[in-house]
């Protein structure tokens, strides 16, 4: 069946993607790899749920199988949820089909066989518009489209996995962090912080303004001072607080991408040339170790 095919390893994201396809009145076929997923996906408004049954616990191993399935089905578009697994699978499918792919599209429209998409380049500094004719693979992040409801039947298809990569072990990452996307205020620390103990000055300020603590990628991924869910930016959390206060954050575009929708941005950094000041409403140039405790005091009154 022609039309749009959808996959996400996150069921809520798969539902949003069906919402996108339905917005455009296209037929939506959603793919999945387990019976449990198939059961969940029957109520999200797709026209059909395609349960691809094979013997691999890694969905990435179905790249070639999906490519063949889409070709046979005469698919117009394959929309995949932009998660780590989703991006990998999507690119393999695009590779085996040797077709176009738009990674992390920020906007999308499909009209008479032509796909128009926009995506960020250079960490968010540039928006690129693209046009694609013919079969295309697109990845889309969560939070862009509204899910719909409606029931669909399940069609089971046998597929062959490429089992050259074997799963030996899997361990859940225990989420210790908070959901910054819901936070009203965020205090953000960058690599300007010298020692882990110094997080205290940020925590004190956060407590005074009832804020959650965020950070830049390096603070979480390299120094492991805060949980990874707490880093902000193009590869981390995209947040929209009322107030965002950064300290020791240089404000490179990849980080600032994550705070664009903040109502008020405040920067504290010792380098007056730091790009963060160009992205801020208010700033103080100076040593955060001096300024931040003073600010906490001033706010407590």
């Amino acid at each position: 069946m022609a039309g749009v095919y959808i996959y996400s390893d996150r069921m809520d994201l798969a539902a949003e993607l069906v919402g996108f396809v339905k917005e455009n009145q296209n037929s939506a076929q959603v793919l999945c790899f387990t019976q449990a997923e198939a059961d969940q996906l029957t109520s999200i408004g797709a026209d059909k749920v395609c349960y691809l049954q094979g013997d691999s616990p890694l969905v990435e191993n179905y790249g070639q199988a999906i490519a063949e399935y889409l070709k046979q089905a005469n698919a117009e578009l394959f929309v995949v949820g932009a998660t780590a697994r989703g991006r990998d699978l999507a690119a393999r499918v695009a590779g085996y089909l040797d077709c176009a792919m738009v990674s992390d599209a920020s906007s999308l429209s499909l009209e008479s066989g032509k796909l128009r998409a926009e995506r960020m380049m250079y960490g968010g500094a540039v928006v690129q518009s693209e046009e694609i004719t013919g079969l295309c693979v697109v990845t889309v992040a969560a939070g862009k489209y509204q899910p719909v409801t409606g029931s669909a039947s399940v069609e089971t298809v046998q597929v062959t996995a490429d089992n050259r990569v074997k799963l030996l072990e899997t361990a859940p990452i225990v989420k210790e962090g908070v959901d910054l996307r819901q936070a009203c205020n965020v205090v953000c620390v960058g690599l300007g912080l010298e020692k882990e103990e110094d997080l205290k000055i940020a925590r004190d300020l956060a407590a005074a303004i009832d804020a959650e603590l965020g950070c830049t990628r390096g603070v979480a991924e390299e120094r492991h001072w805060l949980p990874v869910e707490q880093y902000i930016g193009i590869s981390g959390a995209i947040i929209k607080p009322q107030l965002y206060i950064s300290m020791g954050v240089s404000g490179q575009v990849q980080h600032v991408f994550g705070v664009r929708d903040a109502k008020v941005i405040v920067a504290i950094d010792s380098n007056e040339k730091a790009p963060i000041f160009r992205s801020a409403d208010f700033g103080i140039v100076g040593d955060m170790y001096e300024i931040v405790p003073l600010l906490t005091q001033a706010i407590k009154g």
Binding site: C99, V102, V127, Q128, S129, I132, C136, D281, F282, I284
Partner: peptide
């Protein structure tokens, strides 16, 4: 190329840029 680039545009954020000095 299969992806035809039709436009390239910069992104700017308008902020107050007030420094207290």
């Amino acid at each position: 190329p299969k992806n035809q680039v039709t436009a390239v545009k910069g992104y700017v954020m308008n902020r107050k840029n007030i420094i207290f000095n």
